[in-house]
Amino acid sequence: MKKNTFIAIAITLVFISIIWIIFSPILFQDTHAEADQQAAHKGFFAPSFTLSTPEGIAHSITDYRGKPVLLFFWASHCSVCKATMPKIESVYQEFSSLGFEVLAINTTNQDSLSAAKAYFQAQNYSFPMLLDQDGTVTNQYLIHAVPTSYLINPDGKISNVIIGSGISDGFLRAQLNTLFMKGEE
């Protein structure tokens, strides 16, 4: 390619790029407002639901606005879940006084209710166990595998989705430390 041809092409490319950058915000409006919608994805509001404990006490996600919440989807046949929950319990003990909440949502439609109840009571967890009897919430949150964890910010927006064993106590502590430190400032 001749040097002058190259320079002409390069200048054209730069020119088109500048036009595209200038017109992008005009042609494709900033759509941050749409994050007001609910979706099971980081940055969106957590889809609202109401579920009950085995004792029949209803918990609604909207009741927890203003607090960081961990939704932990689990089943009694899942060994990773059972290995993770004691760690969540220890973090919960540490941070519940600051307002941290944990909702352990049992995927009851794919689990044995009696086995789940027996396990949960035997372990003496201090956070509530919610029953998703017909799987509506599990579908709503696009659960493809247990455990899946949703960490929800006090403003009700999802800050992290962690599939599998990635939800360690260290990770949770780091997130909560950052969150509560910000709150104090």
Partner: peptide, 24 residues
């Protein structure tokens, strides 16, 4: 880098440094 940003986490449980979770 995660450890340096969150030193308290690793002081509480140094094993976190080598834990095989993909999130930290």
């Amino acid at each position: 880098g995660f450890m340096l940003k969150n030193p308290a986490v690793f002081l509480a449980n140094p094993l976190n440094l080598i834990s095989l979770t993909p999130s930290m």
